[in-house]
Amino acid sequence: MSESASSIRYINRPHPVTGVTNAKLGIWCFLASEVMLFGALFSTYLLLRTGSASWPHGPATLNVPLATLNTLVLIFSSVTMVMSWASLATGNFRKYRLYLGLTALMGCVFLVVKGFEYGHKFEHHHFPAASTFYAIYFTLTGLHGLHVIGGIAVNLYFLFRGRVLWQRDPERLTNRIECAGLYWHFVDLVWIFLFPILYLL
């Protein structure tokens, strides 16, 4: 069976009906489901907070400087992610690897900082069962952290398999990195809302 007959259609070229590649349509549908997943938890947070007699003030309870650092780390990682795509779009594979490596590294930095925050909380016996606030705090940040781990795994795959994929089909790799980027930016976007809601308000 030939390559064109066995592979998924409209990966590199936009589908004539939708105007976008099937891969991009797929990742946007996936992100829509992710919005609903986090949306349910944001709704839970809202209900718990408005329904409780008292709620801890974020800055007095959580580490704002560390979370600010993590916000900047994720924003920087979003820039390096989009720069890795731009590097591929201009045919510069060396820069692509550099930027994608930086993105994965920033993801790891985020998790390490988050690990310090969690460790500090556990030392003071602030577990998810400790209060309603900590229950929703650990659920939201924990689920977000799992998404960061997933993003790092995808980026590492494209980092180490990149050369083979680039030699096989450069255009396809560029499109795949754009889709991986859409997911990574979404993870950044979720944190942009989690940060003020949990830490600042």
Partner: peptide, 22 residues
């Protein structure tokens, strides 16, 4: 937060120039 989110979506996620179906 909405301003920051819009910037990420519009420019990094290329929504500004994205197709109608998205």
């Amino acid at each position: 937060a909405v301003t920051k989110g819009s910037l990420v979506a519009a420019y990094f996620m290329h929504l500004k120039t994205e197709r109608k179906i998205v």
